[in-house]
């Protein structure tokens, strides 16, 4: 072995499967990918390779953004959409997390709820929009209902799986230390699965954005989705791009918040 260091590196090097990358390189690569997409976009639109009616230049998009924010109260649309997403998400979480824990921990509860939820999960939430409009109308609660319909069953099943990831050994050792069976869910399974649950919540919040935008395209009078469908009718493609970017950025912000929360709460991981 002439180069022992090299050999050791080989399995953890950035290019090996499951290899590691330094933080700085990571950030650089992430920025590069954003820049590349942006550059392609700027290039093909400015060179006139695509019809400007269908794809705006970055400059035109910025122009649209300025108009949206200053003249068409886009901030209000963002606020409304965010409110709907968060309400739908919170209501789903408040129900799905405790019930999911019970489904994951107790076989009878599992038998009662898991198969049913697995069925409901396959019904596309967006397919409920006509029904919800009939039942609830086109106000806020209808949008929130669509989000709940899409998020709750998924989240519940994910939380159930999360609790089942907790090694049974931990449960057993807690019994030998005097933990009562009725409290083991609270004292062992919940804290042990909390990081997984947080991650599931993060994923679900991402999906909630999809549902809100679709819900806002049907029978709505505000929200990012509403703005986008209106812009489509009036052929203002720049606005649609602003809407897309806004959703992407909001998603990124919430994702970062969740990752921050994860770092703060679970230093033990």
């Amino acid at each position: 072995m002439k180069h022992p260091n090299k050999r050791v590196d080989a399995t953890t090097s950035a290019l090996a499967p499951q290899g590691k990358l330094s933080r700085n390189v990571y950030v650089v690569l992430a920025v590069v990918s954003f820049a590349a997409v942006f550059a392609v976009w700027a290039l093909i639109t400015n060179l006139g390779l695509v019809n400007a009616d269908f794809m705006p230049t970055p400059q035109a998009t910025v122009q649209s953004a300025i108009e949206l924010f200053t003249e068409q109260h886009f901030l209000e649309d963002i606020r409304v959409s965010t409110y709907r997403v968060l309400m739908g998400f919170l209501i789903s979480a408040v129900i799905a997390v405790p019930v999911g824990l019970l489904v994951g921990a107790y076989a009878p509860v599992n038998a009662l709820i898991e198969p049913l939820m697995s069925f409901i999960r396959y019904l596309p939430a967006t397919a409920f929009i006509p029904l919800f409009i009939l039942w609830i109308g086109i106000d806020e609660s209808e949008k929130i209902a669509v989000i709940i319909m899409g998020s709750l069953p998924q989240l519940l099943l994910m939380v159930a799986v999360d609790t089942q990831k907790v090694p049974h050994d931990l449960v057993e050792v807690s019994y030998t230390l005097g933990t009562k069976r009725s409290l083991v869910l609270w004292k062992v399974i919940l804290p042990a699965s909390l990081p997984y649950i947080l991650d599931s919540l993060r994923m679900i919040l991402g999906w909630a954005w999809t549902y809100v935008v679709v819900a806002e395209m049907v029978g709505a009078s505000s929200g990012i989705g509403y703005m986008m469908i209106q812009s489509e009718r009036m052929m203002v493609v720049g606005n649609i791009f602003v809407g897309l970017l806004a959703i992407g950025l909001l998603g990124l912000v919430f994702d970062c918040l969740f990752k921050l929360l994860d770092k703060l709460l679970f230093r033990w991981k």
Partner: peptide
Amino acid sequence: LGPGPDRGMVFQSYTLFPWM
């Protein structure tokens, strides 16, 4: 009749509570 704190157990697998 069941597990209890009168019998302590140490497993081969690591069973410390990781969040503590």
